[in-house]
Every structure is written in C-alpha cells, then in structure tokens.
C-alpha cells in the first residue's frame, strides 16, 4: 500500500470532522489502515479455507494421477476458458473502479462496478450450463441420493455408488483413444472417477458461492456509489470489495488449469 493511494485522507476535505471516521479511531488514515489489514487477514482465512480442498486435490491426484487425467476429459475446456476470461476482465474493471473512486469519478465508478457485476453473473451462467451438463450425464457424485431426496422417497433406495452415464463415459473415453473397453476395464476406470468429480464440484461450488458473495458485496457498493457515498476522501468499501473480488478471481485462475488443463 503506497501513500499515493490515500491522497486526501489526513483530514476531511473541508477541514471539519470527518463524517466517516468512527469514534474509536484517531484519524481516517488509522481507520483505513485497520480496515485494509482486517481485509487482508480475512483473505488469508479464505485462502486457508480453500487450502483444505487444494490439499485434498494434491493428495488424491498424487495417489491416483490417472483418475484425474481421466476426469478432466469430462470438463468443457472452451467454457472454462471463457469463464477465465470473464473473471480476469471483471478483475480489471474492478481495479479500474477503485481507481475511478480514488480520482472522484463517480459515473465511471458506477459503470465499472456494473460491468464487474455483469461479468460475475455471466460467469455463474456459464457455470450453470456446465453443471447442468454434468447432471444430465450423471457425472455428479451423490446424484442418486440427491434425486432420492427430491423425489421424497418415490424412487428406489439411494445408491451409494457413483454411477455415471455409461454410454457418455465410453464415448468420451473413446474420443481420448480408449476404444472398445471391456466391462472390467470400464469398471476399473470409473471406479474412483467420483472422487475427481467430488473434488471438482466442491472446489467450483465453493468458488461459485464466493462469486455470489462477491456479487452481493459489489451490488451493495454499487448502491452506495449511485447514492454518492464514496469519493476521493472515503473509498474504503470499494477498495475492500475490490480486494475480495481479486481473491475470487485468483482462486479461479488456479482452479482452471488444475481441473481443466491436466495432462
């Protein structure tokens, strides 16, 4: 954090008491520092939160590399790439939004925040298409149990096993050069595929929840921006929202190659 980022924060611009200064801080600069440090620590907890899943990924991939190579064939690389571009672009607009508020350009701020939110929503839309695709081909671990719940017990007992759509799996494997698998070979290949899909859904699902949280936070900031609550002398929420959004973006940048681009 450089001093140039906090140009007008020593005192309220009109020299009077700062309306945004909470009673327990002695100066706006102290308040700003505290808020940023708090946010960074919170982001650290988020990284550790995802760290558990990344760790699970590392352990299972080290133990069963073939499962992961097989598993990634069922993910849609173009859609994943599109989502990556969307998020990186939204990070750029978010960073520009922070810049805009620091320079006091309110209309730019509103526009850039709106673009960021739209990118986030588009990301979720693409993700929903991917999830739907997986669901249709029964590539969702525990799908039998979920379906059993939704049917209120009308279908048969929930299966514990991961049973993907066999024709679909065979077709995908054939595309990868594994043609004419006999039943034993097929069973062997899909035996632990559920673990890969479990980690895929946990990681991307948790990430999607964070995208939703980010969209909610930025929408709240957008409302504030429309009501002209932020300016060059007070922009802490925009700054913190930006930090959070960059983290969400960064996690995806790790997820994309780890899940989609395995060799």
């Amino acid at each position: 954090m450089t001093e140039s980022h906090i140009p007008n924060m020593q005192e309220g611009n009109d020299g009077g008491p700062d309306a945004h200064l909470a009673h327990h801080f002695s100066s706006p600069a102290q308040q700003y520092d505290a808020a940023r440090l708090g946010m960074w620590i919170f982001l650290m907890t988020e990284i550790l939160f995802f760290g558990g899943l990344f760790c699970a990924y590392a352990v299972y991939r080290a133990n069963n590399p073939q499962i992961f190579v097989d598993g990634h064939r069922f993910l849609d690389k173009p859609l994943g790439a599109a989502n990556t571009v969307l998020l990186i672009f939204s990070s750029l607009t978010m960073a520009l939004a922070v810049r805009a508020v620091q320079l006091g350009r309110r209309r730019w701020l509103v526009g850039l925040l709106a673009i960021t939110i739209l990118c986030g929503l588009a990301f979720l839309g693409v993700k929903a298409i991917e999830y739907k695709h997986k669901w249709d081909h029964r590539m969702v671990p525990g799908q039998a149990r979920i379906a059993y719940w939704f049917s209120r017990g009308e279908t048969s007992e929930p299966l514990k096993k991961f049973q993907p759509d066999e024709a679909y799996v065979k077709e995908r494997l054939a595309q990868a050069g594994f043609e004419d698998l006999d039943q034993a070979e097929y069973d062997q290949r899909v035996k632990h595929l559920g673990t890969y899909m479990g980690i895929y859904f946990s990681l991307t699902g948790l990430h999607a929840l964070h995208v939703v949280a980010g969209i909610v936070a930025i929408s709240w900031i957008l409302v504030g921006a429309v009501r002209d609550r932020f300016g060059s002398n007070y922009f802490t929420p925009v700054d913190l929202g930006g930090l959070y959004w960059h983290l969400v973006d960064m996690i995806w940048i790790y997820l994309f190659p780890l899940l989609y681009l395995i060799h």
Binding site: T45, E46, L48, F49, F50, G51, G52, L53, A56, P141, G142, R145, I146, K160, F162, H192, G194, T195, M197, G198, I199, F201, S202, L206
Partner: peptide, 20 residues
C-alpha cells in the same frame, strides 16, 4: 478455516456422499 472446510466437507459427505 481448515476446521471450517473440513467440517463443511464432512457435512457434504454425510448428506450427499461426494466420496472425500
């Protein structure tokens, strides 16, 4: 946070059975 993700995964494992 590590406890949080562990227990979250445990809850998901229990309800849905993701196989972790």
């Amino acid at each position: 946070p590590i406890l949080a993700i562990t227990l979250l995964l445990l809850a998901v494992e229990r309800t849905v059975g993701i196989g972790i």
